[in-house]
Simulated assay, not measured.
Amino acid sequence: MTGRPDQEVMTNPRAERVRSVARLAGRSARLRAGAFLVEGPQGCREALRAHLGRGPAKARSVWPAGGVVREVYVSDRLAQRDPELAALVDEVASLRPSAAGLSHDDGRSPSGRRVAVRRASDEVLTAMSDAVTGQGILIVAALPQAMGLDQVLTQGRVRLAAVLCRVQDPGNAGTILRAADAAGADAVLLTTGSVDLFNPKVVRSTAGSIFHLPVVTGLSLDASVDALRQAGLQVWAADGHADHTLTSLASETLGSPTAWLLGNEARGLSETERALADQAVAVPLYGAAESLNVGTAATVCLYASAMAARRAG
């Protein structure tokens, strides 16, 4: 069961509540509300898990238990489509509100209010969603408190990080964040001029990975590079025209703590951005393709570092 069985199903796609949720697709509305949209089963699953305190430990300072999910809108068919996800919805709905500061360990939400779970028709879910069609569930989540790079570097050892330098395509940004999560990276950093991380297209592209690791936005690249070096990371620029390739690097060098600079889709890294790096490194191309897009190149680079580090033990 999701939502109260006696609760009226939302069926009017033009209702003001529906419109107010749909407006969260826009940046200004997100900032005013302090909230963003999470769409699709996997993204919603990870939002609910983070709210229950079950996300990765390195992300809990960003996504505290009880402070992630504000509202859940579900189709009556969710229980048949995805019983596990429906059970998570019911578990979050059952949390008792409590005063701020209480932990989830005693079964209560530290957010101080109950999560609203509402039943909605598929037409209403589609009207709320930024996606072409609704997928049986949609969540309104709270924007996290902004983190500084210093916080990330001092709360735990950072061995692998992705630095997005003016990456503006939502799909690419989401793909990089998802790849960083899969490769076991400790942080993702976005410089000024990069896409809004909480754009619905970015959130969808992460497939829930947005809730798995610290992300810092609005950074100055030169100051970030200095901080990363002081924290013991080498800083490499992913550049398709570089003389060094991943295959030419010694495994111990490749496996050392690394921050990868990843450039804009159309223009790549500028000369100034490349000059900040310790060295530029290319992904070797064995076929006839002229280049790789930044999302694919980032995945290869992050995994090369991660696998070398694991081989080194």
Rank of each mutant, 00 (worst) to 15 (best):
residue 288 A to F: 12
residue 295 G to E: 09
residue 69 V to A: 10
residue 246 L to V: 13
residue 286 Y to D: 02
residue 185 A to H: 12
residue 93 A to Q: 09
residue 120 A to F: 01
residue 207 A to I: 13
residue 146 A to Q: 10
residue 1 M to C: 01
residue 300 V to N: 03
residue 225 V to M: 11
residue 295 G to N: 11
residue 77 R to A: 04
residue 55 G to P: 01
residue 85 L to E: 00
residue 191 T to H: 12
residue 119 R to E: 07
residue 247 T to A: 06
residue 72 V to G: 09
residue 294 V to M: 01
residue 183 A to L: 10
residue 75 S to L: 07
residue 120 A to Y: 07
residue 76 D to F: 10
residue 136 G to R: 10
residue 125 L to M: 00
residue 129 S to Y: 09
residue 52 L to N: 01
residue 24 L to Y: 08
residue 97 P to D: 14
residue 76 D to R: 04
residue 154 T to S: 14
residue 97 P to S: 15
residue 83 P to C: 05
residue 67 G to E: 01
residue 155 Q to L: 14
residue 309 A to S: 15
residue 174 G to Y: 12
residue 51 H to A: 08
residue 268 G to N: 10
residue 166 R to M: 11
residue 162 A to Q: 03
residue 90 D to L: 04
residue 297 A to K: 01
residue 264 N to K: 13
residue 239 D to V: 04
residue 224 S to D: 07
residue 31 L to Y: 09
residue 180 A to H: 02
residue 53 G to W: 10
residue 153 L to K: 11
residue 192 T to K: 15
residue 246 L to I: 09
residue 114 R to H: 05
residue 175 T to Q: 06
residue 309 A to I: 05
residue 140 V to R: 03
residue 221 L to P: 01
residue 214 P to L: 05
residue 158 V to W: 14
residue 77 R to W: 05
residue 220 S to T: 02
residue 33 A to K: 04
residue 24 L to P: 08
residue 300 V to C: 08
residue 58 K to S: 01
residue 124 V to I: 00
residue 125 L to G: 00
residue 61 S to C: 13
residue 275 A to M: 06
residue 148 G to K: 15
residue 169 D to L: 08
residue 155 Q to M: 14
residue 207 A to M: 15
residue 267 R to W: 07
residue 291 S to H: 00
residue 305 S to P: 04
residue 281 V to D: 09
residue 154 T to V: 12
residue 28 S to E: 02
residue 247 T to Q: 14
residue 151 Q to P: 14
residue 97 P to L: 14
residue 78 L to N: 02
